[in-house]
Simulated assay, not measured.
Amino acid sequence: MHSSSAAGPGIGGHRAVEGWGVLERATELARSGEAFVLATVVWREGPTSGQQGSRAVYTASGEIYGWIGGACAEPVFIREAIATLEAGTPRLLALGASDRFGDLPQGTTAVPMSCQSEGALQIYLEPVVAVPHLVIVGSSPMATTLSVLAAQLDWRVELVDRAEFSEGLLTPQSMVVVATQGHGDEDVLAAAFKADPAYVGLVSSARRGRSVRALLEAQGVESAQLDALRAPAGLDLGSTSHKEVAVSILAELVQLRAQGTFAAPVTAPASTTGTAVDPVCGMTVQIDAGTASLEVGDEVFYFCCAGCRTAFAREQGVA
């Protein structure tokens, strides 16, 4: 597998982090609520730039921290990391020439590769799903009960009053429940919609919900956001007490999360513009500014490394 040094910030989606720094970054990502995959090289057979114990993180936003291998291994790692995030289940990869695999553990995904270095790796990919982020606005007994119940699920919960709330508390994956009991409901909701969170719910009667929607529409809030507003928030359980209302809201949030409503989209690194197949070794290559390429006639070919480009140019009789 072609060897190269770890890329610096912004190159190929990489961030220059190594050793224990990868695990520290993984901890930071988990606390911030961003989904990612932690990759660890659990076995290697040289020559290969990936070492046993090498680690890397691939985030749902397409950033890479750390290092698990060179130009041949990286596009496979990115492709399989995206699949791992989407599936939400761990997997073990075996990368290398098929005659180097030997007896693989059951359930291992084998990825034959034809890199010139002829090395081999086994990489364990572990998805870390983002912890749900719930912001509750209000100071009623129901709001307090909901915060306690959600915390029991190990969710990241913030209970704030109306004066403390701003859209800066939210991300597109956040859930916000407005329980201000008619005191500035519209202002809180208008601010929340600016962050375009995954869920916005208002604790209200159905009649009050219709009135709030009309006021927000008059203020210019987009109709798609108003259509997504849950007012009243929660499943219709025929609830009457504040504790039952809290349970109905939490039940709705758990149901929507199980359906994948709050899952963050998974993307390829921002610096890439797609993939291509190396015509020499058959590897899938991520295309970015640093990818080796060669134009032959009207067609552009991309390569995993300079060696494959040289071999192809010689075969085609071009410089």
Rank of each mutant, 00 (worst) to 15 (best):
C304L: 03
L85Y: 00
A60R: 10
L95S: 00
L237F: 15
P269Q: 06
E315N: 03
P269M: 03
W43V: 01
P105T: 10
T89V: 15
T275C: 06
E126T: 14
I11E: 12
G274C: 08
V266Y: 13
L226R: 12
A258L: 12
A73N: 09
L216H: 08
V245M: 11
E80G: 04
D298C: 00
G209I: 05
Q152R: 15
D161W: 09
I287Y: 06
L146Y: 04
Q181Y: 01
L29C: 07
V176Q: 05
V178N: 03
G96S: 08
V188I: 15
G102H: 10
L38C: 09
A246F: 07
G53R: 07
T171N: 05
G138Y: 01
E315L: 11
R55C: 11
L169V: 05
L216N: 01
E126I: 08
L170A: 08
R91Y: 03
R207Q: 13
T310R: 14
T40S: 14
V57I: 15
Q316K: 15
F165H: 05
A270S: 14
T84Q: 03
A71L: 09
V221L: 08
G8H: 10
V200R: 03
V160W: 03
A214Q: 15
T27M: 11
F77M: 15
Y58R: 02
P172G: 10
M1N: 09
Q51C: 09
I64E: 05
L189H: 02
P47H: 09
A258T: 10
E315W: 04
E244I: 06
V203Y: 00
S205Q: 01
T145Q: 12
A16R: 13
R257D: 13
V247L: 15
S49H: 10
S5N: 09
I136N: 02
Y58E: 04
Q173H: 11
L229I: 06
G8C: 01
P172A: 08
R309A: 08
G234H: 08
G70S: 12
A179L: 00
E80M: 09
H183E: 14
K194W: 03
D298M: 03
P269R: 02
S211R: 12
R44T: 12
L125Q: 00
P197E: 11
D227P: 00
L125P: 04
G10P: 08
F312R: 09
L134A: 04
G8R: 09
L104R: 12
T267N: 05
R257S: 11
A224T: 14
Q52F: 00
R213E: 05
A268H: 13
R213W: 07
R208M: 04
A270M: 02
V128C: 10
G184I: 08
Q225C: 09
R213P: 04
S223D: 10
P112K: 12
L215A: 15
L153C: 13
L237E: 07
I68Y: 01
E186G: 03
A270V: 11
S205R: 11
P90I: 07
T273M: 14
